[in-house]
Simulated scan of single mutants.
Amino acid sequence: MTDRAFIAQLDGYSLTTAEVHYYRPDAPSLLQLFVWQEYDLAPDFPALFAFLEYWRREIDAALHSVRIAHDQLIRPAEWRASDAVISIQ
């Protein structure tokens, strides 16, 4: 059985994290933070925007701002040449 996250990464999805800042409905002067994380397709982020649309439609808390970060976890290996000599006994 293959992990769903691994298959998503092979299909071009990358791990996306969004910090959603919002105002509490019971205390509108307080700013709260909600962290959302899912595999999504950059740069369009369809899963994130679907979640934000759901938030606007179903949740009473007003959005203040959203900060997005993502990184592709599967990519070619990075390497660099070294002039060092390692001796092994």
Score class of each variant (00 low, 15 high):
residue 27 A to V: 08
residue 22 Y to N: 02
residue 37 Q to G: 03
residue 34 F to K: 13
residue 88 I to T: 08
residue 22 Y to W: 13
residue 8 A to T: 01
residue 11 D to A: 14
residue 38 E to D: 15
residue 83 D to S: 09
residue 51 F to P: 02
residue 13 Y to N: 05
residue 37 Q to I: 02
residue 85 V to T: 15
residue 24 R to V: 03
residue 66 V to W: 06
residue 49 F to N: 15
residue 1 M to Y: 04
residue 70 H to A: 07
residue 39 Y to V: 01
residue 33 L to P: 09
residue 65 S to M: 04
residue 9 Q to M: 15
residue 26 D to T: 13
residue 9 Q to V: 03
residue 85 V to H: 10
residue 73 L to W: 08
residue 45 F to G: 01
residue 14 S to H: 07
residue 87 S to K: 09
residue 65 S to Y: 03
residue 43 P to G: 09
residue 42 A to L: 01
residue 78 E to Y: 10
residue 2 T to P: 11
residue 40 D to T: 06
residue 84 A to E: 14
residue 5 A to K: 14
residue 31 L to G: 03
residue 19 E to I: 00
residue 34 F to C: 06
residue 45 F to V: 01
residue 68 I to Y: 06
residue 30 L to A: 08
residue 84 A to S: 09
residue 79 W to F: 15
residue 51 F to C: 05
residue 82 S to I: 06
residue 13 Y to L: 13
residue 21 H to T: 07
residue 54 Y to P: 00
residue 55 W to S: 12
residue 23 Y to H: 08
residue 62 A to R: 15
residue 81 A to H: 12
residue 10 L to V: 08
residue 48 L to V: 03
residue 5 A to V: 03
residue 53 E to C: 02
residue 43 P to Q: 10
residue 57 R to K: 10
residue 44 D to N: 11
residue 23 Y to D: 01
residue 32 Q to F: 03
residue 30 L to P: 00
residue 61 A to Y: 05
residue 15 L to P: 02
residue 45 F to S: 05
residue 40 D to E: 07
residue 29 S to R: 04
residue 35 V to N: 13
residue 21 H to K: 07
residue 5 A to F: 07
residue 79 W to M: 09
residue 64 H to I: 00
residue 21 H to S: 14
residue 9 Q to S: 08
residue 63 L to R: 02
residue 39 Y to W: 07
residue 28 P to K: 05
residue 5 A to T: 05
residue 16 T to S: 07
residue 59 I to L: 12
residue 63 L to P: 01
residue 13 Y to T: 00
residue 39 Y to K: 02
residue 44 D to T: 14
residue 30 L to N: 08
residue 69 A to M: 06
residue 36 W to G: 04
residue 2 T to D: 11
residue 16 T to Y: 07
residue 14 S to K: 10
residue 10 L to H: 12
residue 38 E to H: 10
residue 53 E to I: 00
residue 56 R to T: 02
residue 65 S to D: 15
residue 18 A to L: 06
residue 11 D to T: 00
residue 61 A to N: 07
residue 24 R to I: 00
residue 31 L to M: 12
residue 35 V to K: 14
residue 40 D to W: 05
residue 67 R to E: 15
residue 19 E to Q: 08
residue 81 A to Y: 10
residue 12 G to A: 04
residue 24 R to H: 14
residue 20 V to F: 03
residue 67 R to G: 05
residue 41 L to C: 02
residue 73 L to F: 06
residue 49 F to Q: 15
residue 12 G to E: 07
residue 16 T to V: 14
residue 65 S to H: 11
residue 19 E to S: 02
residue 50 A to T: 12
residue 4 R to G: 02
residue 78 E to P: 00
residue 37 Q to Y: 00
residue 37 Q to K: 09
residue 85 V to N: 11
residue 3 D to Y: 14
residue 66 V to Y: 07
residue 8 A to V: 00
residue 49 F to Y: 14
residue 12 G to N: 07
